[in-house]
Amino acid sequence: MPKITYSDAGTAALAEEMRRDPTVFEFCTDATESLLDEFGPVRIRTTPITENTFTGMAVGAAGSGYRPVVNWRQVTFGFVAMDPIVNQACKIHYMFGGQQKFPITFRAAVGGGTKLAAQHSQSPYSMFMNLAGLKVILPSTPYDMKGLLKAAIRDDNPVMSFESNRLMGLEGEVPDEDYVVPIGKADIKREGIDITVVGIAWMVQEALAAAETMDKEGVSVEVVDPRTLAPMDGDTIRASVRKTGRLLVADEAGPTAGASAEIISLATEDPETFKAMKAPAHRVCALDTPIPYSPVLEDHVFPNRERIAEGIRAVLSAR
């Protein structure tokens, strides 16, 4: 099976869906050369710097029979388009009584590690998880990137595809053939029996590394990747926690009202899962600050594999 990067898996997904469906086209402020070469400027539409307007145009085009993909590059630029996302795309299928579907895929890179300071190092996915009518995906591997993005483009609803800055260069096996990863299905990335670590995006990779460390200490870690943040696959997370009796959530975003808080609620508000728990749930998240520039400061703010391992030890020693 060919190995390609997380970033190239996203490009491959879009190219495959554009070949498959002539109604798929992209709005972007900066075209990917291979896509522009293959599909031309009508379907790879390089726009003026007008995130608010080309995102709103995607709503109008989707309501007129197309499947636009809106690529802001960084989520930072997506914030310029909050009206068409929040007030329009997420609500008008419902608000208009379901009479029209609005299949739109939004693409935005999230997370830090790039030394780009506070604006271009954001992980605001919980803000978007709050929007009824929007699905939110966040892959952790090249395989999931291609499969989830293809599923997003085929979905009849607005889907926010968050993509991790840290993982863009990560290589992994990705089949050339057509496949989709279903939206709303979590994945057990590593099986274990002593503790469930739910990781998000880059934190899945860090959790897998921490699991290797803990393995040497005689601790068996199960790593669960939600893959879709909305709607969240609570069943898979709860089943894992019932099996291991312990839960740690690792997230590159801050903890406050975050995806981590939602995951812990989904597990602990279920009586059977709560009864099976042998220790309080625990979070390993970024500190609640804007992300600083200097490497020393940035490293201090973000979680990593060492902090996950420390967190696992803390949960295991809790009584």
């Binding site: 307007t53 145009m57 709503v59 109008g60 085009a61 309501g63 329009q88 208009f96 029209q100």
Partner: peptide, 28 residues
């Protein structure tokens, strides 16, 4: 809204409908 007759919706956001109409124009 009545998409069957090409009425793509009234809108509670002042200025919010202009890009949506422009997207319909692009589709056209």
């Amino acid at each position: 809204a009545d998409f069957d007759i090409g009425m793509l919706g009234a809108n509670g956001i002042v200025g919010g409908g202009i890009p949506i109409a422009t997207g319909a124009g692009l589709a056209a």
